[in-house]
Amino acid sequence: MKYLSKVSTLKAFPENCAGCGKCLDVCPHSVLTMAARRISIHDIDRCMECGACTNNCAFEALKVKTGVGCASAIINGFLTNSAPSCDCGAAGSVGTCC
């Protein structure tokens, strides 16, 4: 299953890549691929912007704007003028998303 086309903010900077392959291990949707010890994006439409790859890259070879892909979180964030958050488990929250 794929979500909207060409919306992900994931960017690769192969010139920074050290070829360790950590990002390949942590990506839950096989978005990335490695050739000649350089990273590149194989299928951007599978990216859900979770930030696993960027968080575990010590060389800044990947960048993404992370966040929750949850409509009610974004609506709540908009209404309260804050960053989208599903507030799972926060005190007093009911009907959370995860």
């Binding site: 299953m1 794929k2 979500y3 949850c70």
Partner: peptide, 15 residues
Amino acid sequence: TGSTTFTGLSGVKKE
């Protein structure tokens, strides 16, 4: 979208 394993922030914002 909040329950799925594949939707991202940018996509949900867009739609």
